[in-house]
Measured scan of single mutants.
Amino acid sequence: MQRVNMIMAESPGLITICLLGYLLSAECTVFLDHENANKILNRPKRYNSGKLEEFVQGNLERECMEEKCSFEEAREVFENTERTTEFWKQYVDGDQCESNPCLNGGSCKDDINSYECWCPFGFEGKNCELDVTCNIKNGRCEQFCKNSADNKVVCSCTEGYRLAENQKSCEPAVPFPCGRVSVSQTSKLTRAETVFPDVDYVNSTEAETILDNITQSTQSFNDFTRVVGGEDAKPGQFPWQVVLNGKVDAFCGGSIVNEKWIVTAAHCVETGVKITVVAGEHNIEETEHTEQKRNVIRIIPHHNYNAAINKYNHDIALLELDEPLVLNSYVTPICIADKEYTNIFLKFGSGYVSGWGRVFHKGRSALVLQYLRVPLVDRATCLRSTKFTIYNNMFCAGFHEGGRDSCQGDSGGPHVTEVEGTSFLTGIISWGEECAMKGKYGIYTKVSRYVNWIKEKTKLT
């Protein structure tokens, strides 16, 4: 034993070699072989497995989906700052455009905790909710729209109204504003409101030439003092309507412009014939205590009207009353817009006519005020429907199939267009061939041609 100890002390290297040989010859039971080890760690190889990531292109799944990435790591994937920024906006807080917040056709661009709407022409605001041009839906104005110097929408209202708090709607500024039905039992019968379409306001006024200088022999019209197929109006439903009495009662109609003036057809009036105007009328054979009678003290036909040349060209006249009318729910003026808007309103496509005229061709006159909704007829169809001249200051309205029309005794009465609950004068009943005849239409004086003249002559002093 002493000898062994001496050998170990003198030859430590020998001992180490012996131990190493023993270990190498022993069977290893701690580690699995290569094949079995792979069965336990069965993990798919990654895209760049075996390579240094710093030297390969980034992978979106590896960089940002398996674990949260930084902007720089995302930049490695896209290799483009702009594309990385677009991805980053949604990656950080989701897609803010998912709810489609942009209105009126706006395009949404996502941002971090926010979004941006790219608005089409005519709109602005956070969600493109603000109209900035009158060309689109009248700028959301209830009545009139004008573009300011910086191309912003400025709404306005006709006389007797003021802008509401929203700067879009119009509200009454006087007790009985024009064009409004205020009798409670008839307010439910107000005709369907007309909503502004998209309009090209630059070209809204037709490029028409008034044929002022045409000389033409007097034409022989049949029954051209021209509501057939209409309905009984309720008291106060058309408070701007008046009836004219002269040699015979209810020979023509008219509309209240203001307390002192009536507008009617020029062919209705004769110099030297006494005319009485009755406002607030409903049943011409009954006294309903809503009527107001006034005498006409002055007749002003349009300066281009000449019955000797043509009885229905420039067929418009103004009547001055001896005493002002007292405005109330049964006696209310009709609204008159400017030339541009009167023309736009007419193009809405349908209007209402009213009167006490004959209820059928050569038949009896109506006792109760009649009204009828009539569609506008395109000019080409209008011209083809008659052998008589249709001037540019006239328009056609009615039904091709016949059966409904204005008729004798309705002449001078109103053709009105309702705009968001307020009625505007767009025409004056003038003439036609018979009444409600198939293929024939009622012919009306186009008020847009005469609004400046009306307003100039009827100013209240």
Rank of each mutant, 00 (worst) to 15 (best):
N5M: 11
N5T: 12
M6V: 11
M6K: 14
I7M: 13
E10G: 14
L14H: 03
I15L: 09
C18L: 15
G21M: 14
Y22I: 14
S25K: 06
H34P: 11
K39Y: 05
I40E: 02
N42F: 06
N42C: 04
P44A: 12
K45F: 05
R46D: 07
Y47H: 14
Y47S: 13
S49Q: 15
S70Q: 15
E72C: 04
E73Q: 13
V77K: 14
F78V: 15
E82T: 15
E82V: 12
W88F: 15
K89W: 05
K89N: 14
C97N: 01
S99F: 05
N104Q: 03
C108V: 01
D110H: 05
S114T: 09
Y115G: 02
W118M: 15
P120I: 06
F121L: 13
F123D: 01
G125N: 01
D131W: 11
T133E: 05
C134Y: 02
I136H: 15
S148R: 06
D150E: 10
T158P: 04
Y161M: 04
E165L: 11
E165N: 12
N166E: 03
S169T: 10
C170V: 01
P172W: 03
V174K: 08
P175R: 11
P175N: 09
F176I: 09
P177T: 03
G179E: 01
V181P: 11
Q185V: 12
S187F: 11
E193N: 12
F196W: 13
Y201D: 10
V202K: 12
V202R: 12
N203S: 09
S204A: 05
I210N: 05
I214G: 07
Q219H: 13
N222D: 11
R226W: 07
G230E: 11
G230W: 14
D232V: 06
A233M: 08
V243P: 00
G246P: 04
A250N: 12
A250V: 09
C252V: 00
C252Y: 01
G254Q: 00
I256H: 00
I256Q: 01
K260F: 08
W261I: 01
A265Q: 03
V269C: 09
V278Y: 04
V278L: 08
E288H: 07
E288V: 06
K293A: 06
I299G: 04
H302K: 01
Y305V: 01
A307E: 07
A307Q: 13
Y312D: 02
N313T: 10
H314R: 02
E320H: 03
L321I: 07
N328K: 01
T332Y: 04
I334Q: 01
I336W: 01
A337S: 03
Y352D: 03
G357K: 14
H361K: 13
Q370E: 04
V377C: 03
K387H: 12
T389F: 13
T389S: 07
Y391I: 06
A397T: 06
G403H: 14
S406V: 05
G409M: 13
G409A: 13
T417D: 02
T422F: 03
F424Y: 10
M437F: 14
M437Y: 09
G439L: 03
K440P: 07
G442M: 13
N452I: 04
W453V: 01
I454C: 01
K455Q: 10
L460P: 12
